[in-house]
Amino acid sequence: MTAGNTCSDGLDNDCDGFVDASDPGCTTPDEICFNGMDDDFDGRADCADPNCDGARGDPCGSGLPGICSAGTVTCQGAAVACVQNRNAATEASAAGTCSDGQDNDCDGSMDGTDPGCAVPGDLDGDRDVDEEVAVTALSLQLQLYPLPFTLCPLHFTLYP
């Protein structure tokens, strides 16, 4: 290329049969991803340019619940995608994630409302063993081992 010739004007400035970016005498700048321009003059801008494949940009919302919601704009195969930053984890008492205030398994339920955090014997969903379980156990025990006497209901009469 001679002085004053450009590598982005659409012309074969040095008459060697090559135009712009395809001319071996031209050095082109790198593609800057996510700026809306064809920086390397190959006719493809940003994620459409193979040089940007895998490039990561601004934060975005993945559309998934819980810890999977935060994502990053990413070039994937000539397209723009919002890729989640964290994958789903286990939401279970044994994993220690049932009281951290997050939806770790990305199912839309957090901690105490997540089925993965269920407590055996919890009948009302408050994550503790309910008295109903203890009463049921006592009732079962009485059926298996009856008392040697009869319990009679008490009757009270109230006088004004």
Rank of each mutant, 00 (worst) to 15 (best):
T2D: 14
A3V: 13
G4E: 07
C7P: 02
S8F: 15
L11S: 10
D12I: 12
D12A: 10
D12Q: 12
N13T: 11
D14R: 07
D14A: 09
C15S: 15
C15W: 04
C15D: 09
V19F: 09
S22A: 15
S22N: 13
S22V: 13
P24E: 06
P24K: 07
G25C: 14
T27Y: 03
T27D: 05
T27K: 12
T28E: 12
P29Q: 15
P29V: 10
D30Q: 15
D30M: 12
D30Y: 08
E31H: 09
E31A: 08
G36T: 07
M37Q: 15
M37R: 14
D38V: 03
D40F: 07
F41G: 00
F41R: 10
D42Q: 10
D42S: 08
D42N: 15
D42I: 07
R44C: 00
A45E: 07
A45I: 01
D46T: 04
C47E: 01
C47M: 04
C47K: 06
A48S: 15
D49P: 02
D49C: 05
P50Y: 12
D58Y: 01
D58M: 11
P59N: 13
P59V: 00
G61L: 11
S62I: 01
G63M: 07
P65E: 04
I67F: 03
S69W: 01
S69T: 06
A70G: 07
A70W: 00
G71T: 01
G71F: 00
G71L: 01
C75D: 01
Q76E: 14
G77V: 02
A79V: 13
V80A: 06
A81M: 10
C82H: 00
S93F: 04
A95Y: 02
G96Y: 04
C98H: 04
C98Q: 03
S99C: 02
G101I: 05
G101S: 12
G101V: 06
N104M: 10
C106N: 01
C106P: 00
G108L: 12
G108D: 04
G108C: 09
S109M: 12
S109A: 14
M110H: 02
G112T: 09
G112E: 02
T113F: 08
D114V: 04
G116R: 05
C117Q: 03
C117Y: 02
V119N: 01
V119Q: 00
P120F: 03
P120M: 03
P120Q: 07
G121F: 05
D122H: 09
D122T: 06
G125V: 11
D126A: 07
D128M: 10
D128R: 15
D130Q: 05
D130H: 00
D130K: 00
E131W: 13
A134E: 03
A137G: 04
A137L: 14
A137T: 10
L138F: 14
L140G: 13
L144T: 14
Y145H: 15
Y145W: 13
P148Y: 09
P148D: 08
F149T: 03
T150M: 11
C152P: 01
C152S: 14
L154Y: 03
L154T: 13
F156D: 03
T157Q: 13
L158A: 13
